[in-house]
């Protein structure tokens, strides 16, 4: 469904991503892991159109989407839940959701979609009229995911959804991710929490210094020495 080929990203002189190749098949969860600064967020940003691509290609559904605007890519069915959630703090939960579903669908459909989201995230119904900035970190993460789902994406890019959450909440988020996959969503998941990510993912890609150093099924990687030493602390 998604394939990233020989992706290179530069910020001025700095080469943040040297070469990343990866593919995500329909219905899969792929985990993208690596140390801080490895280039994970940059890769997601490039797929979503937020970060300019220096060279290489991003193909979605057989269409080259490299260099398209973020709005055009979003309309093709790719949603990014950015690192740090970036919900609209001064807007209510309702307005955050509304924007998520603003342009992809007729108003009536967006209503239904919102109802689905409120079923999925009861906490959002409770805080429907509350400003996003007043929610707790976990609630904001729920909101960010719900907002991304409002546009009925076929693929979702999750950038560190567990960041800064209490362990209990992390479980909730991962349960949710599993649930989304069951519903047929394709997921590219960036996680610092490698153990959890490998548990849920089908396959995984390990980045270091902007390059893919290892990839394979989640099982293979979980038992690989390199991953165990570097990321699983074993």
């Amino acid at each position: 469904m998604l394939s990233v080929e020989a992706l290179k990203i530069r910020y001025g002189e700095v080469e943040a991503v040297r070469r990343v190749d990866l593919t995500v098949d329909s219905g899969e969860i792929i985990a993208l892991v690596g140390a801080n600064g490895a280039g994970k967020s940059s890769t997601l940003g490039a797929v979503a159109g937020l970060v300019p691509v220096a060279s290489g290609k991003v193909i979605f559904d057989g269409v080259d989407i490299t260099g398209l605007t973020p709005e055009a890519i979003a309309r093709k069915g790719v949603a990014l839940v950015p690192e740090g959630r970036r919900i609209f703090a001064s807007l209510t939960v309702a307005d955050n959701l509304r924007l998520g579903g603003a342009v992809h669908q007729p108003v009536a459909e967006a209503r239904l979609r919102e109802e689905e989201m409120l079923e999925l995230f009861p906490i959002l119904r409770r805080y429907y009229r509350v400003k996003g900035g007043n929610l707790s970190g976990g609630e904001q993460q729920m909101l960010a995911i719900a907002r991304a789902l409002m546009g009925k994406p076929r693929m979702i890019l999750l950038d560190e959804p567990s960041l800064g959450l209490a362990p209990q909440l992390i479980d909730t988020v991962f349960d949710l991710i599993a649930e989304l996959r069951r519903k047929g969503l394709t997921i590219l998941l960036v996680e610092q929490n490698v153990a959890l990510a490998l548990e849920i993912a089908d396959r995984a890609v390990v980045l270091a210094n902007g390059e893919v150093v290892l990839s394979g099924t989640a099982k293979e990687l979980a038992s690989s020495d390199l991953v165990r030493q570097a990321y699983l602390g074993a």
Partner: peptide, 11 residues
């Protein structure tokens, strides 16, 4: 507040 994220919504 955050122009990029608005664009991520397809707007």
């Amino acid at each position: 507040e955050d122009f990029d994220v608005v664009r991520l919504m397809g707007i």
